[in-house]
């Protein structure tokens, strides 16, 4: 018990500022729902058989939809999909973005020049359009392909941000010192520079996770998600396709949007808290 409290306390202090702590609370809330969703949900996944368009009541806290499904249960199962797509796609994005950013920022010269040209080029072509063409030509869409498509197409901004941070780190004394004791480039990049830019990476990580959650919702809304799975995006897509507005079914429309909003809001608050602390530690270094 004591260790649990200590771990919780360590987590608590790891999120700087009031905003960061608020973000942490939001994140924990969604993590619990994502992990224990099947225990929390009042009815089984995709269970059909209630009356359609029931307004919220004690047996259906968020009412039912046009198919006679319990909205609260669908929301809880949807949390799992949106949560994992966001986290895993965000991690893939981060790995690619950090690698490209650190390598181009540290190496300089033609490596940097060519990598950054590629980034500039793809920054112009709208990502969602690229995702649409990839997803619609895939023989079948599953959760894995959703994650891969989002993860592999969202790293451009991050690569730029990490690159500029690496460039300013490259000038530091510790890099010079590492070189003097004979470290090679890879060691300097990933053992010396990387730990020093962790806050910037974390701040970027939460941003790309947010974007991944929003991208998943957008793709699902376009009908390009996994048709057998529930996510916040598919719930909204169904609500829109079945004219929930005309049936006054606000209970079908508000929860998925608010869930996306609060989930992303939590991440953005955490990222902002980390960046503010980092800036304060470094005397307002521009990022």
């Amino acid at each position: 018990m004591k260790t649990i409290i200590r771990i919780a306390a360590a987590c608590w202090s790891a999120f700087p500022g009031k905003k960061g702590k608020l973000g942490f609370v939001i994140l924990v809330w969604f993590t619990v729902i994502a992990l224990f969703g099947s225990l929390l949900a009042p009815y089984p996944k995709n269970f059909i058989g209630f009356e359609s368009w029931l307004p919220p009541s004690f047996s259906h806290w968020l009412g039912t939809d046009s198919y006679g499904q319990d909205v609260l249960s669908q929301m809880i199962y949807g949390t799992r999909t949106s949560f994992w797509v966001g986290i895993i796609a965000g991690l893939i994005t981060t790995v690619i973005g950090v690698t490209v950013g650190v390598v181009s920022g540290f190496k300089g010269g033609w490596v940097e020049e060519s990598l950054m040209r590629v980034v500039d080029l793809f920054l112009i072509i709208p990502t969602l359009a690229l995702m649409i063409i990839l997803a619609s030509f895939l023989p079948s869409m599953g959760i894995v392909s959703t994650i891969l498509i989002i993860g592999c197409l969202s790293w451009l901004y991050m690569a730029r941000s990490i690159r500029s941070q690496t460039m300013s780190e490259r000038q530091s004394g510790y890099v010079e010192a590492a070189r003097t004791i004979g470290m090679n480039d890879a060691e300097i990049m990933f053992r010396e520079i990387l730990p020093n830019i962790v806050p910037v990476i974390l701040a970027n990580l939460v941003l790309v996770t947010t974007q991944a959650v929003l991208a998943e919702a957008g793709l699902s809304f376009l009908g390009l998600g996994d048709p057998t799975n529930v996510s916040w995006g598919t719930i909204l897509a169904l609500a829109n396709a079945n004219n929930a507005v005309l049936f006054h079914a606000w209970w079908w429309i508000l929860p998925p949007g608010l869930a996306i909003a609060f989930f992303c809001f939590g991440f953005i608050l955490i990222g902002n808290g980390i960046l503010e602390k980092y800036r304060a530690n470094r005397g307002n270094a521009a990022l």
């Binding site: 929003l214 809304f221 995006g233 829109n240 606000w250 429309i253 949007g257 909003a261 608050l269």
Partner: peptide
């Protein structure tokens, strides 16, 4: 601004229509 940044466009659209 942080909050608006976290909301999907189409959800705002649905709410406005409603």
């Amino acid at each position: 601004a942080f909050f608006l940044n976290s909301v999907p466009f189409f959800w705002i659209a649905i709410i406005f229509i409603m």
